[in-house]
Amino acid sequence: MRITLRVWRQKNADAKGKMEKYKLDDVDEDMSFLEMLDVLNEKLILQGEDPVSFDHDCREGICGSCAMVINGTPHGPQKNTTTCQLHMRHFKDGDTIDVEPWRARAFPVIKDLVTDRSAFDQIIQAGGYVSVNTGSAPEAHATPVDKVSADDAFDAATCIGCGACVAACPNGSSMLFTAAKVTHLGLLPQGQPERQTRAISMLAKQDELDFGGCTNVGACAEVCPKGIPLASISRLNHDVLGATLAGARAD
């Protein structure tokens, strides 16, 4: 199939970028989207042009590296699918596809489609863990966890930290990411002692990093490749409300 790509090209963080047009004539429908970009890049290199930079690693939908907005939708048109798992059979011969990087102040563009998502690591640093040192753990069966909580915690824990939620959010908010971690740990008995301080600290960090505020639009959950439930945000809110009323603080 023939595809026209319009790709955001930006030399470096400070450069002004623009959309560039490329035509590909021999796209196979069984190719993944990234393989299609590989083919483009091979062509560009042989023409002596700079290939399109994009983050990618595992190419099986779990590492969360690949990040691009395809025709206005983070990770493209397939639900619950990362860009690397998106295949060209979901496009038609002759399609024009727009490819852009995540857009958020907290995710500055490094080059082309590559952005700096280290803000997510900083949110985790603010409390996305259980404070347990190696070796101090009790026997695993000492604390049973009811299956429903364990399953719900798992649903939240599937977050791959790709940042599609931020990219899609009209407010540029990282709320779904933060909420996924707060929900994952908050539903497990191991996460209880730090539950309120975790919620309030991670939220404070998210606000500080210039992510937007959540207004419950739900775009995040629509594009989330792992289907993190929007209700996770409600859990985060619940924990923040409790912490706010109780005056909980983290230190």
């Binding site: 955001w8 959309m19 206005g72 727009d98 852009e100 907290a106 908010s173």
Partner: peptide, 11 residues
């Protein structure tokens, strides 16, 4: 503030 540069192709 959170999104100083918008998308060319709006979602």
């Amino acid at each position: 503030r959170a999104r100083p540069v918008g998308y060319q192709h709006k979602g």
